[in-house]
Simulated assay, not measured.
Amino acid sequence: MSIQLTGVSKAFGKFQAIESLSLSIQSGEFVAILGPSGCGKTTLLRMLAGFEQPTTGEIAMNGTVVAKPGFSLPPEKRRIGMVFQAFALWPHMNVAEHVRFPIRHHKETPARVRANEQERIAGVLQMVGLSQHGTRMPHELSGGQKQRVAIARAIAAEPSLLLMDEPLSSLDAMLRMEMRREIQAIHRQTGTAIVYVTHDQGEALAMADRIVVMKDGRIEQIGTPQDIYLRPQTEFVARFVSKANLVRGRWERNHFTPIGGDGTVRWNGERVADYFKEAGMYPVRPDQFQLGAPGRARGLRGEVRNVQFQGKEFHYHVHCADGLLEISSPLQFQLNDEVSMTLAGGEED
């Protein structure tokens, strides 16, 4: 299912949740809507689902308008599946009955799926790894198994679009990693378009074909995970996704001289967005800095103010002329050590 949003906005009284948003989603595409709480991502999902009407603009699915001011095709007629943050399982139904429910009750369920109900239930349970759990009740399942049931129920009727609203946020870290792989596998097997709402940068970067970064009801940047992470276009995207330090300094075309250097430190900025050049900043991710002892490398000078051991690397806060910088490095330094900071791959002679 292809989706087209054109000039869509949503207001709740005087509060503007979505500001004139336009977006295209291709059939079979996995799109993550990423942003902090209150940015409008769940409101956008609810409009795609049919739970909210847009205040302005149109939403079209496969070329047919399904929502505009004063009109919204109800969810049961949109051939969509939904997975919520809460598992939302019915306590009186076992696993197989949860999967059977949408097959029988969704108006858009394909006839061939209805005609082969038991085969479809068995296939979906196998897809989510619950073939041996069909007769179990929700209270007999673990958190990860409950989320698998919710996903199985959402895909049972072969939806053309799967909407997922922070589905992994209630799971522990190990389960989240496991469920990421499960969702990716299901996407590959079904070919269903997925719109996945999350505030977790790791989830979006790991799973999506494209990421839509939102802030205050507006789109900040759209791109592949690599584009969003490696080539942020705004200060918000640089900080929120890449966790970048925004080093201040002076630009001369594509050459950047940071504050605190001796005048000979220059960084190549050919791939840095114009926004940062106009603002006199250079975005540097924590892993892009290389730490060394002062005098051994030409670079910025600073003092270690905080150290956190993270297994394969150390996370440092280093105070320099431009303030406090966050840096990740496999090298070990002590609190109050003087260090030199160079830019990996960006230094100029």
Rank of each mutant, 00 (worst) to 15 (best):
E119P: 00
E119C: 00
I121D: 04
A122V: 00
A122D: 15
G123N: 15
V124L: 06
V128Y: 07
G129H: 05
G129L: 06
L130T: 08
S131R: 00
H133V: 06
H133Y: 15
H133F: 15
G134Q: 13
G134R: 09
G134F: 08
T135G: 15
T135Q: 15
M137G: 10
M137C: 04
P138I: 14
L141C: 10
G143N: 08
Q145S: 08
K146C: 13
Q147S: 06
R148W: 10
V149F: 09
I151R: 03
I151N: 03
A154E: 04
A156V: 11
A157D: 01
A157C: 14
P159G: 11
P159N: 12
P159K: 07
S160C: 12
L163F: 05
L163C: 07
D165K: 09
L168H: 00
S169R: 01
A173C: 02
A173G: 00
A173Q: 05
R176W: 03
R176E: 10
E182G: 03
I183Q: 10
I183D: 09
I183E: 06
A185S: 15
H187M: 07
H187I: 11
H187A: 09
R188L: 11
R188S: 11
T190N: 07
G191E: 07
I194L: 05
V197F: 13
V197Y: 11
H199R: 07
H199T: 01
H199M: 06
H199E: 05
H199S: 06
D200W: 09
Q201F: 12
Q201S: 10
G202L: 14
G202F: 08
E203I: 09
E203N: 10
L205V: 03
A208S: 10
A208Y: 01
V213Y: 10
M214N: 05
K215I: 08
K215D: 13
R218C: 14
I219N: 04
I219Q: 04
E220C: 06
E220I: 00
Q221N: 01
G223W: 07
T224P: 00
P225T: 10
P225K: 13
P225M: 11
D227H: 12
D227I: 11
D227Y: 05
L230D: 15
R231E: 14
E235L: 06
V237E: 03
A238E: 03
V241P: 04
S242K: 01
K243H: 15
L246E: 02
R248A: 15
R248V: 13
G249M: 09
R250P: 00
W251F: 15
F256M: 03
I259H: 13
G261H: 03
D262P: 02
T264W: 12
